[in-house]
Design a binder for these strands. Structure first.
Lengths: 189, 189
DNA sequence: TCGGTAAAAGTCAGTATTGACTATCGTATA
DNA sequence: TATACGATAGTCAATACTGACTTTTACCGA
């Protein structure tokens, strides 16, 4: 749903080709959403069939496939845009990345390896966060800032959680190390 | 990927039917992942074709379709499970729910409505969080606790962010209200 | 003991998404 | 000047996922 919203939203600033849309989204990296080229074309075709977009054939342009298809927002499309916008802002959907599943089965790995893997994860988060921070322009409009703030909030939460998880696991592995130490040296009863 | 992991993981505690798997996942609500029935059947069939599961036809059982298909983890499946488990824990994937897109285009709505919608969102988060908390058993194994903690961390981050966003928008709307007040009463230069 | 409802166990047609492929043009460089 | 390369612009077959449908059985109340 938010993918359609994104496409309609980008078309508010004037007609564009599918490739234009793709490039804009890709250029913003993580900020917007994950939307592959093939999917962009699929979605704008569907939006067109639903009457939300209008296609025109721009003949004799530069570039390959000399005739490019240019998409324009219709009045219906504008209406649909605000409908979707309201829905997206209003409703909260939690996204599952799969760590929860990983945690549930974590005991199938030796504790030391689990700690090692979580540490790798922590590093990955830190690097991803840095990438997002890099892309932030201080002069961005408030709307953009809210979006960036959201992204960073989630990443920070992930970071803090992973730190806490590591602490817990470390305590656990220390305990078991102590136990085996005790067992090893008190030899029986 | 984590969906396959979940299925393989659940099969560690013994052979099960597709429906069993579905029920277990559904019973845990938000905790695991979003996995529809149709998708469960699709995935276990694929896992079977890849040699990770073995099917047996349990004939003459009670229940409808008297012959149920029972799936068992193979040795390859066990290997694949740990491979996936490592991958899932190690790699960080950020999940896009679409709020970012909503925020980017928020200025297309009147500020008052934006505030109203974000407030609805905040309420939705609070209720979802309560649902998750409800399902928490204090006697759950550490692994489960880590998973629950992760979920709650993300929800809390979402909550804090939305509160902050609302504050920002409110300040903004106050400013514009003051401006229109000033304009309304000073009637021209 | 009959009818209605809910749970068990799946199937399947359709939708959404991906990844890999093709083809054209501008341009820098050997 | 030929050519290799990257950006433009898109197509399409394959995969992943959904939602609505079906059938059988158990059980409950009238």
């Amino acid at each position: 749903m938010h993918k359609e919203l994104l496409l309609l939203g980008l078309l508010q600033s004037g007609p564009k080709t599918g490739y234009d849309l793709y490039r804009i989204i890709a250029a913003h990296g993580e900020l917007y959403t994950d939307l592959k080229k093939g999917n962009v074309y699929y979605l704008i075709e569907r939006l067109t069939e639903s009457g939300y977009l209008q296609v025109k054939l721009e003949a004799g342009a530069r570039g390959p496939r000399r005739e490019r298809l240019i998409y324009t927002l219709t009045d219906q499309g504008l209406q649909h845009f605000t409908d979707l916008l309201r829905d997206v802002v209003r409703t909260y959907e939690l996204a599952h990345t799969g760590v929860e599943v990983g945690m549930v089965f974590l005991s199938y790995l030796p504790v030391d390896e689990a700690i090692q893997l979580l540490e790798e994860r922590r590093q990955a988060i830190i690097m991803r966060r840095a990438l997002v921070v890099q892309e932030i322009r201080a002069d961005a409009p408030v709307a953009m800032q809210l979006a960036q703030d959201h992204l960073l909030s989630l990443m920070d939460a992930e970071l803090i959680w992973s730190t806490r998880a590591l602490e817990r696991l470390s305590r656990e592995s220390e305990v078991s190390a102590t136990v085996s130490y005790a067992v090893g040296h008190s030899s029986g009863s």
